[in-house]
Amino acid sequence: MEQFAQQLINGLAVGSIYALIALGYTMVYGVLRLINFAHGDLFTYGAYLGMTLLTSLALQDRFGLAVGLAVLALMVMGLVALIGVILERAAYRPLQSSPRLSAVVSALGGSIFLQNALMLIYGARYQVYPDVLPQATVSLFGLPVPVMRIAVVVVSLAMMAVLYLFVQKTRTGTAIRAAAIDQGAARLMGIDVNRVIQVVFVIGPALGGAAGLLVGLYYGQISFTMGWTYGMKAFTAAILGGIGNIPGAMVGGLVLGVVEALGAGYISIAWKDAIAFVVLILILIVRPSGLLGERVAEKV
């Protein structure tokens, strides 16, 4: 029972990171119908930028741990969002009227480019995050749980809540939802779809970058290729919840994280990476619209 509870909390922590990344996939897909293959690499950029800023600026020493990390997170999110916007401008916008596969290849090219740029700057080896966080544990229902694990879940959920309110309550959020349902109609209603796409490419990468920072702080070790694995899992999570569906991405991420942690704990750690894909395939066969729904299967 104790092992079960520990795995569950561990799964929730990993799952909330998947959810943050999945939001970027789902929002871009919702508006552009494009799998942004470079999104996983934007997440990696978040982790690396976070490491560099953490060591070079040492904000946590100047303003205290909480404020310092918050400022740092905002800087990382801003910078990653900037890369996201540039990527959209350079690699995706010129392809809006081209065959869909061209955009997929362009996205893959962007991913290869970003990944190798990172390797050239930092080198191919694993990088270690500076130790800034206390290694404390708290007791939760009688279980010792690392503080960081809870912090990851709380921070992620807070960011998702803010995003949800933004998308549901503001004008820009309404425009995003409208463009996701029907781009042509949205345009006819006077919505500047290109601006919506830009907003999506600010929010998605910012959340992905934040997730990268969290992974760095949480695991302490990052590599320039980690974007692939996290990206694929997060995309799985987005489909699991029903792609294009923002609450779906959150639920999908958490479910996937928990299933994976339990599977690794009870079945076999060697098959951990395969579990996510098996779940994905089963979901697509049994309930192609995802947990919270969006039509997937073409009825032909």
Binding site: G109, G110, L120
Partner: peptide, 8 residues
């Protein structure tokens, strides 16, 4: 790096 750029 060049390869990715050429693809785009």
């Amino acid at each position: 790096l060049v390869f990715g750029l050429v693809m785009m």
